[in-house]
Design a protein around this nucleic acid. Structure first.
Lengths: 201, 201
DNA sequence: GTAAGTTGTTAGTTACTACTAACACATTGT
DNA sequence: ACAATGTGTTAGTAGTAACTAACAACTTAC
């Protein structure tokens, strides 16, 4: 499920925006030059300015275009089985699938958290929805007696933080501390939570 | 245990280095100007260059000075009780205490992961040691029959990733998705792991 | 075939950035 | 008293960044 760049079929603006995100995510907005974006996107610098006017506009347009909202709550509730293991696994997979598509924006929002906080405000919307889903789900599981009495919000966040931590350490030039494949991580971490949250029989 | 900045008693170089890290962590190396560092540190730009020669040197000296190694393994083994709850809590607290002192360097290493990877290589040494400790500890606990049979490395990383995730989301302008105090997080997350890793009686 | 739209090129402006040189001033130790 | 040391100031340089203007070339639509 890895996206392969085929500049074929993409409009000039799309190519430029994608190149811009790619570079800014790596170096930061300020450190990337319009010259660089032009060179890597295969257009001249003039074309950039003709389409977007300013460098700042490139960033804003990119954020606008590439940070779509996903209704995680609906997606997940459509397949809910009220089986902790199966459901948590689906949440984890959904989360990482989302990150696979949006990781550049996620990293960019971190990179620019002090200089362009508006990115983070847009980007944090999706995790927020995922959290709301998880909290509701946990509370429902508790009502059904399938989960121990514990703070649903904290445990929902624990699960998301663990997944965020995996993602971040992976990006951080990761594999410096440990190299564990995503599937192994998902399975073992879900098992841990299932044991940790299921009432003892 | 929060460090309070008293520029009193600090040498010129120390003040400049600290100011530089502070700014670079927020904006990135390239985006911070020597003028800015000078202004915020209260010295003239000339003083910066007289002491360090180049901007790059400021970064390198700062990394050298502020990324000391901690022998987490020894520190933790000195207090080990082979009680999962108490020990994990101590690990978590040690980790966050370390981050409290070094978070600027940690964030800077992330900010510059593509442009100055040498920072990350130095910084990742401490988590690596912490991981090694945890893996050894888990394996010992398994030998003692106090922990279920599961991949010690993956579970050690799960624990560290969860803590990294908390730290990161907190920095990310955090409190956007959830606002849970550190103490609550530590206690609830440790409880989760204790339940998840202790054999059922 | 011609007009409209898109892109490249070249030259240039303005502002800023890292960094240097030279001189002045103040503090401190001897 | 004097030298050494650390600092500020002022002026300046060379390079680069974002952005503009004007003209040429190409593609496509009708």
């Amino acid at each position: 499920m890895i996206e392969i760049k085929d500049k074929q079929g993409m409009s000039t603006e799309e190519i430029i925006l994608e190149t811009a995100i790619d570079l800014m995510e790596k170096k930061g907005f300020k450190a990337v030059t319009t010259k660089e974006i032009a060179a890597q996107s295969g257009f001249s610098e003039m074309t950039l300015f003709r389409h977007f006017g300013t460098k700042q506009n490139i960033l804003e347009k990119a954020v606008e275009v590439y940070s779509y909202l996903i209704d995680m709550k609906t997606i997940l509730y459509d397949h809910v089985e009220y089986d902790l293991k199966k459901d948590l696994k689906r949440v984890s997979e959904t989360y990482h699938k989302y990150n696979q598509h949006n990781y550049k924006m996620v990293l960019l929002s971190f990179q620019e958290r002090h200089t362009h906080p508006f990115i983070g405000e847009k980007i944090s919307e999706n995790p927020k929805r995922l959290k709301n889903y998880l909290v509701d789900y946990f509370e429902e599981m508790q009502k059904r007696g399938k989960m121990i009495e514990t703070d649903a919000e904290v445990q929902a966040m624990n699960f998301l933080w663990m997944n965020l931590g995996y993602f971040m350490s992976f990006q951080l030039g990761g594999r410096k501390v440990a190299q564990i494949p995503l599937q192994t991580f998902i399975e073992d971490s879900v098992d841990l939570f299932v044991r940790g949250l299921t009432p003892c029989k």
